[in-house]
Design a protein around this nucleic acid. Structure first.
Lengths: 219, 219
DNA sequence: TCCCCAATTATCCAAGTGTATAAGAGATTT
DNA sequence: AAATCTCTTATACACTTGGATAATTGGGGA
């Protein structure tokens, strides 16, 4: 009679989620090499063998973790607009502003994202996930820009969306990796200002009171 | 009498360089996990043990590879300015334009860079290398912007340099990971246009003939 | 309450990992 | 041409890796 570890049965969904979460945490904290099957299992509170019961291979778990990451990121950004103002200028300003603060700007996020880059580039399915997620975000941005009702043809609108997206991505990257070289609120301010300059509108003045004051308080 | 592999003795510098190059190639092609000591040694045409003769550990080789990567990137960008025009507007335009073409924009580069992100974040020494490299690039950009002789105070100059750097970084990132969703020349055009918009100058008109035509040819 | 199935654990395995150490051979010096 | 140095190879080792398989136990349905 060997004593065996006590355990609780869980639904498939809960188990998959906890395993995916554990994998993400480990990649964020220690890079891809830290996310071994044993470490993931331990973090999720199960034994290693269970991973293979829910995922055909570690690779498959890894893919699921990346899909979940992209879903989370896009969900977060759309949530920002839920209780945003109705004024198109203010909406865009809030969107840009929120994209350049925590929890979006965060060292672990960038580490997690970067940890999957090679896998994304080598796996067509994951590349599709990445592209869809990128285009979804850009389309939201393009929609916000289009709502400004300036006179811009579709080609220019597309170019503007790409440019504004790039500003956000670039600031996100730099702010996440080197947070200490930027003053509090600086990234948000530069982002809103730059997007406004690219579009030829004054976005800073359009920022609602709440975000603007909290930015002022921080800086 | 066992037959032993023939070999040539090399200088320490050549060996280190070839080992670093091999490590970089493997990370770029197959991610960090592909860069094992055996794979690196095979790529460099030596046996695995030699790595430990030149580097105290694999970690140290990895650090050297990252330093070399950053040095190469900054060297490449400064080279662009060597035979650039003297007109400040044209110089800036060419700089931005060159930063958004191959070989800077390249899938393997971004994979290589991303492969080191976690190591950079966890190792203070590498974080310092990263920060120095980032600031050097940004300072070059800020110098080019300052040469435009517009009336801008230092704070605004800094913010503009950060913003322009972000545009370049963001476009670099997106263009490298998803090259097929951008038309040829599109990234360069958007980059030059956006930087001009942020600074309030017409950079597109300032682009010298050679780059502008080649861009036109491509698009 | 008692089955019975599948969720979970436990154990094993072959391959690969970084590293340590000893032996051999290229090149430089004398 | 001989000696010497150290660059380079070869081999071994302890450990980790992802995966396979068998044993068991939790919990819902009869």
């Amino acid at each position: 009679m060997i004593l065996r570890r006590a355990y609780r049965r869980e639904t498939e969904e809960k188990r998959r989620e906890s395993l995916i979460a554990a994998a993400q945490e480990l990649v964020a904290e220690g890079g891809p090499k830290a996310a071994t099957v044993r470490a993931i299992a331990e973090r999720a509170g199960v034994t290693a063998g269970l991973i293979r019961h829910y995922f055909a291979s570690k690779e498959e778990l890894s893919q699921a973790a990346y899909r979940a990451l992209m879903d989370t990121m896009t969900d977060n950004t759309s949530h920002v607009l839920d209780d945003a103002p109705v004024d198109p200028l203010a909406r865009l300003a809030v969107f840009v502003w929120a994209s350049l603060r925590p929890p979006v700007v965060d060292g672990k996020s960038v580490a997690l994202w970067a940890g999957f880059i090679h896998q994304v580039r080598s796996d067509p399915a994951l590349l599709g996930v990445h592209q869809a997620s990128y285009l979804r975000f850009r389309d939201v941005l393009q929609g916000l820009i289009g709502d400004l009702q300036r006179s811009a043809n579709p080609d220019q609108l597309r170019a503007e969306a790409i440019a504004c997206n790039a500003v956000i991505d670039g600031l996100w990257l730099e702010g996440s990796v080197l947070p200490e070289i930027f003053a509090p609120g600086e990234l948000e301010r530069i982002g809103v200002t730059s997007v406004g300059a690219i579009l030829g509108v004054d976005l800073v003045a359009a920022l609602p009171v709440s975000p603007r004051t909290s930015e002022t308080v921080l800086s």
